[in-house]
Amino acid sequence: MTTPVPTVAAALLQAHRTGRPADAAPLAGQLQTPADAYAVQDEVARGLGWFGDAGPRHWKSGGPSRQAALTHAPLPPGNVRSSPAGMRDVPFQLRLIEAEIALRLGRDVTAAQAAALTHDGAPSWLDGMAVSIEIVDSRWQQARDAETLLKLADLQSHGALALGDWRPFEARDWSAQECRVRIGAGPWQTFRGTHSLGDPAWLLPLWLRHATRHGATVGAGTVVTTGTWCGLLSAQAGDRVEVEFPGVGTAAVQL
């Protein structure tokens, strides 16, 4: 009998190495829990040598509401780039755009410290925030129609990340925060107070408990991007994507 985690990991490793999406259909039902999906993430990262002993320096985290279970994924370093970022060389299957706020730790966080963090106290561990653009992609042929746990195993459908300039973190009225997005020659689209958690920093304790769950320390300077303000917007190869959060900053990526 095949073991689910290595079987799914092998399919994703092959997809990463060849650039050809894997067929998710034969793997339907293989993963039973989020823990299985996270084990696949870990095995793929080891197989591709993404992080070594230092651990991930960039993450994504988020969820549809504070009542839902949040999901997390470490991000491969090769496709995290500074704005204005060029991504023409990245062979995306999808080019779905999420406008986000990224947060940066100012201090190391141990597993014991993460366990004690509160939603109110966690932001004091931050030293920076920046506008970020995530390009959502998939290593599955079925892409957005793949099973939820298979998408989570595939880094929660992460493709690449562009990071704007950093500025000191500050508490803001996120319910009034505006987000503007322009894709290619299209018009600017405006969103206001649309973060699913109400405050991007709310997820910090949950993300850090996940990131330290095996006893690792998350180092100062580690970045987490915190979920979309604009849903998923479609882009095409050749598009320039621009995002602005007034009062926070801007970011741009060339696809």
Rank of each mutant, 00 (worst) to 15 (best):
M1G: 09
T2Q: 14
T3N: 15
A9R: 05
A11T: 02
L12D: 00
L13W: 00
L13N: 00
R20A: 15
P21Y: 12
A22S: 08
A24L: 06
G29V: 10
Q30R: 15
T33Q: 14
D36E: 06
E43M: 15
E43S: 11
A45I: 13
G47W: 13
L48F: 12
G49R: 12
D53C: 04
R57W: 14
W59L: 04
G62P: 08
G63T: 12
G63Y: 12
S65Y: 11
T71L: 15
H72Q: 06
A73D: 01
P74Y: 08
L75K: 00
P76I: 08
P76W: 11
P77H: 08
V80L: 09
S82D: 14
S82R: 15
S83F: 09
P84M: 13
R88D: 13
V90A: 04
P91D: 10
Q93C: 06
L94K: 11
L96C: 04
I97D: 03
R104H: 02
A111M: 09
A114S: 07
A116M: 05
H119G: 00
D127K: 12
M129W: 11
M129K: 07
A130H: 02
V131I: 09
V136K: 07
S138V: 09
T148A: 15
L149D: 05
L150F: 11
L150S: 03
A153N: 03
A153D: 00
L161I: 06
L163D: 10
E170N: 08
E170C: 10
E178M: 12
C179M: 13
R180W: 10
R180V: 08
V181Y: 05
V181C: 08
F191H: 03
F191R: 01
T194C: 02
H195S: 00
S196A: 14
D199I: 00
A201W: 01
A201D: 02
L203K: 01
L204K: 03
P205F: 06
P205D: 02
L206C: 02
W207L: 07
H210C: 03
H214W: 12
T217Y: 11
G221C: 11
V224D: 05
G227M: 07
G231C: 06
L233W: 11
G238D: 10
V241G: 03
V241D: 07
E242K: 09
V243Q: 08
V248Q: 03
T250K: 14
A251K: 04
A252K: 05
A252F: 08
Q254D: 14
Q254W: 15
L255S: 01
